[in-house]
């Protein structure tokens, strides 16, 4: 492994770990649920993505041949993270969790009366 790739790998690993840490810091530090939601869904996703890119480069150089299956986890996380964030926000609104700002009127509460026919999928 040349010095340049090692430097690149170290940078990617540090940046990834730093973003993972910042995401969790946001989770612990911010004041209401809706703002806390932002930390893990954004910072952590990029952090893990960057770590996985580092892993792909490392195993492509040191293993036998190109190693791209890390891309799969990155892709999967980028697809699922927004879905879990959306569902969590929806659940919090449904429970009328207190927020720093006034909650919007009646959003989330109509889920109970959702008619069976309203979901074509």
């Amino acid at each position: 492994m040349s010095a340049t790739t090692e430097l690149l790998l170290s940078l990617l690993v540090i940046i990834g770990a730093l973003f993972t840490f910042i995401g969790s810091l946001g989770l612990a530090r911010l004041e209401d649920f809706y703002t806390r939601l932002h930390g893990p869904t954004k910072a952590t996703t990029l952090g893990v993505g960057s770590l996985l890119i580092a892993s792909a480069i490392y195993f492509s150089i040191n293993g036998e041949g190109l190693s791209l299956h890390e891309v799969l986890v990155t892709l999967f996380l980028f697809i699922t993270a927004p879905i879990s964030a959306h569902l969590l926000a929806k659940a919090a609104l449904h429970q009328r969790l207190a927020s720093l700002v006034p909650l919007p009127k009646a959003a989330g509460s109509e889920d109970d009366q959702e008619s069976p026919g309203s979901h074509p999928s």
């Binding site: 969790s24 806390r36 952590t44 770590l51 892993s55 986890v73 996380l77 659940a91």
Partner: peptide, 26 residues
Amino acid sequence: PSAPDRILALDTLYINAIALLVLLGI
């Protein structure tokens, strides 16, 4: 303090676990 908070924490925990496993792999 609320249930969604705990679910969010669990969600973050599994993503952190992925990060730790990838690091361990390297």
